[in-house]
Design a protein around this nucleic acid. Sequence first.
DNA 1: TTATCCTTGTTAACAACGTTAACAAGAGTC
DNA 2: GACTCTTGTTAACGTTGTTAACAAGGATAA
Lengths: 209, 209
Amino acid sequence: MTLQTAELRRQRRHREAQRAILDAAGLILLEDGYENFTMRKLAGRCGYTAPTIYSHFGDKTGLIDAVLEEVFRELVVLLERVQRATDPLDRLRAQFAAFVDFALRNPTHYRLLTTPREEASEPPPSGEQARALLEEPLQALAESARLRVDDTASVQQSFWALLHGLISLQTNRPDYAWSESLLETSLEAMIDGLVRPEQVLCEAKEKTA
Amino acid sequence: MTLQTAELRRQRRHREAQRAILDAAGLILLEDGYENFTMRKLAGRCGYTAPTIYSHFGDKTGLIDAVLEEVFRELVVLLERVQRATDPLDRLRAQFAAFVDFALRNPTHYRLLTTPREEASEPPPSGEQARALLEEPLQALAESARLRVDDTASVQQSFWALLHGLISLQTNRPDYAWSESLLETSLEAMIDGLVRPEQVLCEAKEKTA
DNA sequence: TTATCCTTGTTAACAACGTTAACAAGAGTC
DNA sequence: GACTCTTGTTAACGTTGTTAACAAGGATAA
C-alpha cells in the first residue's frame, strides 16, 4: 500500500517540479525574450537551482524544446477548433488569421520554433503538426483543381513565406507603423493570384455580361 | 615633410587594421554564422588581439554594425545598377530578384540586418538606403494609379513581408525541398493581386475577343 | 528501530564568453 | 636624449552554460 502511494507521490513531485520550471521558463521567454533568458534567472524564478533543471531537462536546448512543444500544442488545438468551416478557402482564411494572431501574441516562441537554434535541433512534434494542419486547406483546394498553378508545393510555400514574413517583420519591429489591413490586403492578393474563386465562374460571367 | 608622411602612414596603418578586422569578421559570419562568432576567434583570425578590436570598434555591436554597413553598401550599388528598367513593374521584378539573390548569398548578414540584435540598435544607413530603393518602383506604380488597393503602405508592406518570408524561410531551412519556381510563383501572384498590368487593357480585351 | 540505498536537490567549480584596467612599446615632437 | 601620444598586449572581472562531488530525505529490509 505505502508501496504504491509512495511511487505516486514521487511521480507527483516530479511533475510539479517540471511544471514549475516550464511555467517560469515560458514566462521569462514571453517577458524578457530569449536573449535575456538565462538558466540562473530561471532557477531563481522557479524555486529550484540550476542543476536541478538540468537533471530534469538535460540541456538548455532540451528545456526550450519542452516549452515549445507545450506552447505549440495550444496552437494545434486552436487550429483544430477553427477547422470546421466547409469551404477550404474559408478554412484557410480562418486558420491563417488564428495562426498569425497566435504568433504575434507569442513572438519569442514563434521565433525559436522557426529558427534553428543550434546543430541538430529538429522542430518539436507539435510544430510539425501545426504546419500539417495549415497545409490541409490548400491540399483540399488542389484536389478540387482550384489552384491556378500546377506546382502545389510552390503554392503552399508561397503562402507559408507570406505568413512567416508578416509575423517576423511585425515582431522584429513592433514599433513600426504597420498597416491595419496588412494581413487582409496581402493574403487576399495572394489568394487572388493563386486560387480560383470557387465554381461560380458561370454566374460571375453572367453578371458581367 | 616627415610631418605629413608620418600622419599619412599613421592613417594608413589605422585603415589597414580596420580592413583586416572587418574582412576576417565578414568571413567568420559567412562561414560559421553569428552564434559561432566570438571576439576571441576574430582576434585569432585577423592578427590582432581582442582589446585592439575594441579600441577600433568599441563594441561587438559596433563591430557588427560596421560589417553590415559595408556589406549592404554592396547591395545598394547592386540595386542601383538594376534600377534602369523603364517600366516600374520590370524594375520591381529585377530589384526583388537581385535582393533575394543577395540575401540568400549572405544569410547571416541579412538576418543580423533584419533582427534587432539588442537594445537600441538601429539598422545601418545602407540598410535603410536599400529599403528605400526597393520601395521606389512601388511608389512609381502608386503615382501612375496602377495599384489595386488604395493604401499604398499596405501594398509596400505586403511585398516586403513576402520577400522577407521567402528569404528567412529558405535560409532557416536550407535543406528543405524548396520549389525552384517559388520566387516567381509567389511574386507574380502577389503582383497579380495588387497591381494593374499597365494600360494595355484595351489590347488585351481585343485579343480575348 | 536501525542500516542501506536511491532519488532529489545543493554547493562549488570549470571553461568560454564579452569586456575593461593596467601597462609595455614604439613613433613623433621638443 | 627626454616627453608624450598612439597602438598594441597581458591579466583580470563578471556572467554564461554546464558538470562533478556531495548532502539530505524518504523507502526498503534486517
